[in-house]
Structures are given as structure tokens and as C-alpha cells.
Nucleic acid binder design. Structure first.
Lengths: 200, 200
DNA sequence: GTCTATAAAAGGATAGAC
DNA sequence: GTCTATCCTTTTATAGAC
């Protein structure tokens, strides 16, 4: 039996539709149609469409471990390989979507030009959680990273490479653009590991 | 006197408004208001709003030298410094916009989820021209880059870093996120130059 | 080529019964 | 909490005179 509350149904549908079509191009009618709810139910839970967006961003924020990190890291122990396993998870989504995949957070971050403070905070929090997870990997890598490297900045650079790679793969409809970004990042990590060894 | 044709006025206004508000959030009425034209004039030149978008993307494609590269490279001779001068140009725009700056092409690339083939081609062509310019710098850098490095992939990586850095600076409303991305890219180039020297 | 008026549809949101 | 009906605005685009 289906115990999903109207709220959960709407968040679920909105996560999918905002990802597929974007926020502006998803109408409240789209959400009602997909959830089989009536407008009264939606507006009873969410005073406005923007409140649905806030709910979606909160759901992504709360779900990063379960939805993103655990699936990618289940089989991987090495902390640096965890980083590339996560990136490979994105690669899978790119391929499975015929290169139309966009990072849900990154896409919203660029689509919304004058977001509410609350919305912007949640976008930033999602990025911050993502890079914090990478930074934990870098910390776990210990002396394989030269000690003078700013690990927060390097973690952020991994997100940068992911977002830029996803953007270009999607625009060119060719996963090779993502692969090249990851290859360059991998080369950077190898140079860092060599430098760490040389000064050890 | 003002010799700007209605077409030029509309393209100019659309470049500004699509950048400020995005494509979907810019109405035809916004374009008419800013250009002081009437709808008859606009639709006489552009059969639909999407044709305005195509005109905008063509204008960016044609104007990359004059609008972007020449201003950044006027005083810079060193090919690798040209790359970072270009990135510094983006930094200036970020700061001048109070960290609301978004790359016009990158923002459109992520906002438009199901673009017309023509629109997608133009987005891709804009990215391709940008990375081609970087690749010319890398070629000019000669032996400072190790010969086994894929210069096309590295050029693309520069775009990746720029787009990812802009996205995060804008989301966090803090140029430091852009600066950190550039710093990491700079570190990568320095490691590459060291590697090139070591094997010379 | 440009003007005004307006069509036609879609959008977010609300009212009031149940 | 959920239903239906509908308000009101905005939106893209067109018609037909000038």
C-alpha cells in the first residue's frame, strides 16, 4: 500500500520535474498531474511554488549520504578512489540519460537569477555538504596530499571539475567532455601524489 | 545620432536581460520596454522569442574576440598568463556584479533543458570557440607544457574551472570560491611546467 | 516597417463547499 | 485535508490599419 503523504509525493515529483525541465518550466499543474493531487492539497502543504523548491533543496541536503555518497562508495575503501568513484557515479547518470543529465543543484543555481535568500542558502548548503564529503576523503588520504595544499580549496576544485564537466557533456551531448575533465583532475591528483612523495 | 537598427537594439537588450534574468524570466514585453519598440517591430525581425535567443548566441559567437579576448589580452604577451588574464577578466565581472555574475553561455546551457538543435549547437559552438582560444595559448606555450599532455583536454579543463568557479562564487555570493578554483588551476599549471622542465 | 489592439493560452494562486 | 471551479495576471504571438 502507498503510505506516501501528499507532501512526500509532491517533493518526489518536484525533484524529478525540476531536474528534467527546470524550475521555471515546471508548472504547478505539472506537479498536480504527476502526483494525481488537486491544487487544494498542494497549496494546503506548500503556500507557494517556491516553498516546493525549498522542500526539494532540503530533501537533497538531507539525502546526500543515502542518495549520493553511499551508492558510490559502497565498494570503495581508498579515500582518493572514493572521489573518483563519486565522479564515476555522475558519469553513469550522464550516460544513462543520453547526455542530458544536469546536476540538479548546479542547474538550479544557474537557472535562478534572483533567488530568495532562503533558496540561495540551501543551494550553497548543498554545495558545501558535497565539498565537505570530498574534504573528508582528502583528510583520510593523509600524506598522499602535500601538507601545504589547501584541502578545502582542492575539495572545492573537485566540485568545480564535476560541474564544469557535466555542463559541457550536456551541451555537447557527449560524455567525452566529462571524461576529459575527470582525466585532467586525475592527472592533477597524480602530480600532487608525486610531489608528496618527493618531499617525504 | 543613433543608427542602431531595431534588430541590433533587440539583440543588445536581450543579451543584457538574458544575462540578468535568464531566458525564461525575460518576457517579450521586457525586451519591448527596454528597446522602446513595439511588438510589431520585434516580430517583424524575429518570428519568435527563440529566434531572439539564436541571434544572441550568434552575437556572442561572433563577438568573442572583440568582447572577451582582446580586452583581457591587450597588455599580456605570455601565452600562459593570457589564460589567467582571461580568468581575471571573469573575476572582475564577478566583483563588479557583487558576485551575481554568471557566464551568459553557461547559464543558458543549464537553464534550457530541452533546447532546439540550433540553440544547442550554438551553445556548443560558443564553448568550442572559447576552448579553442585557450588551446592556441597552450600551443604557443610550447615546451612549457609536457608533450604528452592533451592540450585540447587541458584547454577544456580551463573552461571547466572557470564555469565551476563562477557557479560557486555566485551561489555563495563570495568571489573567494572563484579565486580558489583559479588557484588550484594555477597549481596544476605549475606542476605541469615543473614536469616539463624535469624531462627536458 | 511600424502602430495599436487583442487574441488565445498558460501561469500561480484562491474560494468556499464538503 | 481535499474537492471543484475560477479569478487574475502574464505570456507569446497575431491582425489589420497606417
Amino acid at each position: 500500500m502507498n503510505m506516501a503523504s501528499p507532501r512526500d509525493k509532491i517533493i518526489q515529483a518536484a525533484m524529478e520535474l525540476f531536474w528534467l525541465k527546470g524550475y521555471n518550466s515546471t508548472s504547478v499543474a505539472d506537479l498536480l498531474s504527476r502526483t494525481q493531487l488537486n491544487s487544494g492539497s498542494l497549496y494546503h502543504v506548500f503556500p507557494s511554488k517556491q516553498d516546493v523548491l525549498i522542500g526539494v533543496l532540503e530533501a537533497y541536503r538531507e539525502g546526500i549520504e543515502q542518495m549520493l555518497l553511499e551508492p558510490a562508495w559502497g565498494q570503495v575503501a581508498d579515500p582518493i578512489e572514493k572521489i573518483f568513484a563519486l565522479l564515476n557515479g555522475y558519469r553513469t547518470m550522464i550516460v544513462e540519460s543520453d547526455c542530458t543529465y544536469g546536476c540538479p543543484i548546479g542547474s538550479l543555481a544557474l537557472e535562478l537569477h534572483e533567488p530568495d535568500p532562503r533558496v540561495r542558502e540551501l543551494l550553497a548548503a548543498n554545495f558545501a555538504n558535497w565539498t565537505a564529503a570530498i574534504e573528508r576523503c582528502l583528510d583520510a588520504a593523509g600524506k598522499r596530499i602535500p601538507p601545504d595544499v589547501d584541502k578545502g580549496a582542492l575539495a572545492q576544485f573537485v566540485l568545480t571539475a564535476m560541474e564544469g564537466g557535466v555542463m559541457q557533456a550536456r551541451t555537447h551531448r557527449d560524455v567525452a567532455y566529462f571524461d576529459r575533465a575527470v582525466t585532467q583532475l586525475r592527472a592533477h591528483f597524480e602530480l600532487l601524489e608525486q610531489a608528496a612523495k618527493a618531499t617525504a
